[in-house]
Design a protein around this nucleic acid. Structure first.
Length: 301
DNA sequence: ACAGGATCCTGGGGGC
DNA sequence: TGCCCCCAGGATCCTG
C-alpha cells in the first residue's frame, strides 16, 4: 500500500467532452518538447505522486494497470528530455516516459481545474496539483521502465541517435556518406539524429541551403558540416522562442511559442523566399510535405 | 541491410 | 446542407 493519503483510481474512463473545443497541438519536435520539460521541471521536481487516473482509450502504448501501484507514492526526482522523449526519474529508479506524438499535451493544473476532453492520464501531486496528459489523436504514449537499464535498452533497440547539439563531425559525415536516402529522410531519421521532425527538417535544409532531395552520399564534406551546424542553429533558435505554436499548441505552462513567425519555408508554399524572393515550393519527400526555395536550395551543386 | 510504404488516429477543409 | 475523401505527421511494422 502506498503512503497515507494516496489512492489508485482506474475507473475505466475519464470524463469525456465530445463537444469540447479540441485544441490541436503543434507537432511537438525537439524545441517544443524541450519547452515542455523546462516548464514542467520546477512543478514536478520533488513532488510525490498521490493518485493516478487512467482513461479507457489506449494511447500508442497502452498504460498498464500495474504501473498505478508501481508509481503511487513515489517522488519525481528529475525531468529530462532525450530526443522527443520526456523522461521523469522517480525514486526507486523507475522512469516515467512520455512521448507527445502529434498532438500530445503535458501540463500541470490545479486539481479542481476543469478537465479538458481527450485527457487520458492524470497524476495527482502533492499540493492539490495534477500532471495531465492530453492527446486527441493518441499517437503519444506514456510508459514506465523499471530501471535506467530498461530505458536504455528501449532506446538502444530503437537505435535512438545522438542529440543534435555538439554532433561529432566525423560521425555526421559518415552517416551521410553511407546512405542513398535524401537529406530530408536522413534528418527525419531518429537513428541518425534525435529530435528533428518535419518542420525543423525543412527549416534546417533552408538554413544550410541544401535541396531536400539531395542524396546523403552525394554531399561533400563542406556541405555536410554546414548541415550539421544548421541543425543546431535552427533548433536553438526555436528553443529560444519556446518552439512553434500552430493553432493551439501550448507549452507546459500553457504559454505559446513564437518560432512559427520565423518559419522561412515551412507552410509558406507560393510565398516569396525571405532570402531571394523566389516562390517557395512544396514537394513530397520521404513521404512528407517538404518546403524549400528552388533558388537558394538548388537540386545540384 | 536498406529504403520506401502502410498503419495507427482525429478534426479540418475542399470538392461536388 | 451533407457526404466523401484527403491531409496533417510522430513512431513502428511490413514488404520488396
Amino acid at each position: 500500500m502506498g503512503p497515507r493519503g494516496t489512492e489508485v483510481v482506474s475507473r475505466g474512463s475519464l470524463p469525456y467532452n465530445p463537444a469540447g473545443v479540441v485544441e490541436e497541438g503543434a507537432v511537438p519536435e525537439l524545441p517544443e518538447v524541450e519547452t515542455v520539460v523546462r516548464d514542467l521541471r520546477p512543478h514536478l521536481t520533488g513532488r510525490r505522486i498521490t493518485s493516478i487516473e487512467s482513461g479507457r482509450k489506449a494511447l500508442r502504448k497502452p498504460w498498464k494497470k500495474r504501473w498505478n501501484a508501481d508509481l503511487l507514492g513515489q517522488t519525481i526526482r528529475s525531468v529530462e528530455r532525450r530526443g522527443k522523449w520526456i523522461v521523469c526519474r522517480l525514486d526507486g529508479d523507475r522512469r516515467l516516459v512520455f512521448h507527445l506524438g502529434m498532438t500530445g499535451q503535458l501540463t500541470v493544473a490545479d486539481a479542481g481545474a476543469e478537465r479538458e476532453s481527450h485527457t487520458h492520464l492524470i497524476f495527482g501531486l502533492e499540493g492539490l496539483r495534477q500532471l495531465r496528459f492530453r492527446d486527441y489523436r493518441r499517437f503519444g504514449s506514456a510508459t514506465v521502465y523499471e530501471s535506467p537499464a530498461a530505458l536504455e535498452q528501449f532506446f538502444a533497440r530503437a537505435r535512438l541517435g545522438p542529440e543534435p547539439f555538439g554532433l561529432d563531425a566525423t560521425y555526421w559525415r559518415s552517416q551521410l556518406a553511407r546512405t542513398a536516402r535524401s537529406l530530408k529522410a536522413v534528418l527525419l531519421d531518429q537513428r541518425v539524429v534525435a529530435g528533428v521532425g518535419n518542420i525543423y527538417a525543412d527549416e534546417t535544409l533552408f538554413q544550410a541551403r541544401l535541396h531536400p532531395k539531395v542524396v546523403g552520399r552525394d554531399l561533400d564534406a563542406t556541405s555536410a558540416d554546414r548541415l550539421r551546424r544548421a541543425v543546431a542553429t535552427v533548433l536553438n533558435r526555436a528553443i529560444a522562442r519556446r518552439g512553434s505554436t500552430i493553432r493551439n499548441y501550448v507549452g507546459g505552462e500553457g504559454l505559446t511559442g513564437s518560432y512559427q513567425r520565423e518559419f522561412r519555408v515551412y507552410g509558406r508554399t507560393g510565398e516569396p523566399c525571405p532570402r531571394c524572393g523566389a516562390p517557395i515550393e512544396c514537394l513530397r519527400v520521404a513521404g512528407r510535405a517538404t518546403h524549400f526555395c528552388p533558388q537558394c536550395q538548388p537540386a545540384r551543386g
